[in-house]
């Protein structure tokens, strides 16, 4: 167990330089954004004097280095600054929006797994057959679609033409109120509150954006499943199991798939953070109130604090997810001994 803890600790330490790099790069990048936020926020008819007043009020009259150290100091006290765009603390903004993004990403990932894993297994069972080629074409098509195009197309088809989907207006239809906050995931929260109506409403809203996102994630998961299954099927223990006359379903399900699950799980970590990034465009298309749409607005308005906060939280999330997956792998992989 100590080895495992040490491994986890080492993994954490490895992330530290990255985090420092992220802070520096995000600070530099945001300062390089063109446009003068002071001018932007001074309003429509502000003159030079009032712009200067705004500049002082926002602390933009100080040197970059000064601003950087103030920023880092604030970070350590948990203060991410105030978003110029929405006028609220960045931390509050991120905390209220993060669950929306996560719920969407997890649902998208879930859909992708449900489709991609069986496809990958099918392809691996009959490599080179037409099923294999079909799978390959299908998942590659998924990853070849620009997400915003897929999203708009789905809205047009399911909302505008067929009327099956609700209006693409964020997480809940207009007159529903969000369920009591427990996890921040509306679907889960409404279930906890025992509110079936809200659950169905929340579910309806999330299907299209999650599908858009999920399509994009099919390819890496299906590919990895196929490769891992092929490896597993070619391994000695599967051959032995087959030779022993076990049914092919048992062989597939118990022996091969279990062994193929590990590399697939590793891929999921990558795919998850990849989806978090791809979120940005999907959220914009579906008016999803997540951190991605927040970031686009902030970037366009040169809203330093908000962009920094977003990038920082995304990077931390990335590190966390990978850490969690590594830990999980360490714990379930029998080859890594418990007492080393």
């Amino acid at each position: 167990m100590r080895t495992k803890l040490a491994q986890v600790g080492r993994r954490l330490l490895q992330a530290v330089p990255s985090v420092i790099g992220i802070i520096v790069i995000s600070f530099a990048l945001t300062r390089a954004l063109p446009g003068d936020p002071a001018v932007y926020f001074a309003g429509a008819m502000a003159d030079e004097k009032s712009i200067a007043e705004v500049r002082v009020a926002l602390g933009l009259d100080r040197s970059w280095i000064e601003q950087f150290f103030i920023y880092v100091g604030n970070l350590f006290s948990g203060n991410l600054g105030v978003s110029l765009n929405t006028g609220r603390p960045v931390l509050t903004e991120l905390m209220t929006r993060l669950p929306a993004s996560l719920e969407l990403t997890f649902t998208g990932l879930g859909i992708a797994i449900l489709i991609a894993v069986p496809l990958g297994v099918l392809a691996a069972v009959r490599p080179g057959s037409w099923i294999d080629h079909m799978c390959r074409v299908l998942v590659t098509a998924g990853v070849s679609l620009p997400t915003f195009f897929t999203g708009l197309f789905l809205i047009y088809l399911f909302y505008y033409l067929l009327g099956l989907a609700p209006s693409p207006l964020g997480r809940l239809d207009i007159l529903f109120f969000p369920p009591e906050h427990v996890t921040g995931f509306y679907t889960l929260d409404s279930l906890i509150a025992g509110d079936g109506e809200t659950f169905v409403a929340a579910l309806k809203q999330i299907v299209l954006p999650a599908l858009t996102l999920g399509l994009f994630a099919l390819a890496p998961i299906a590919r990895m499943t196929r490769a891992a299954m092929l490896n597993a099927l070619a391994s000695d223990f599967v051959r032995t199991a087959r030779a022993n006359g076990l049914s092919s379903a048992t062989v597939l399900g118990t022996y091969a798939f279990r062994n193929a699950a590990l590399p697939v799980l590793t891929t999921l970590g990558m795919v998850f953070s990849f989806l978090l990034g791809a979120n940005v465009l999907v959220e914009k298309v579906f008016s999803w109130p997540g951190i991605g749409s927040f970031a686009i607005e902030a970037l366009i308005a040169s809203d330093y604090a908000a962009v920094q906060g977003f990038v920082l939280s995304m990077a931390l999330l990335f590190v966390l997810v990978n850490l969690a997956i590594d830990t999980l792998l360490t714990l379930i992989d029998p080859r890594i001994g418990l007492d080393g």
Binding site: G21, L29, P34, V280, A295, L299, V311, F318
Partner: peptide
């Protein structure tokens, strides 16, 4: 290794947005 890790820890599309927004 660290530099690549740092870049990869960014949501890549957002990083691209930032670079283009900053450079024009």
């Amino acid at each position: 290794g660290r530099v690549s890790d740092t870049i990869m820890a960014f949501p890549l599309f957002v990083l691209a947005m930032g670079v283009v927004a900053a450079l024009g």
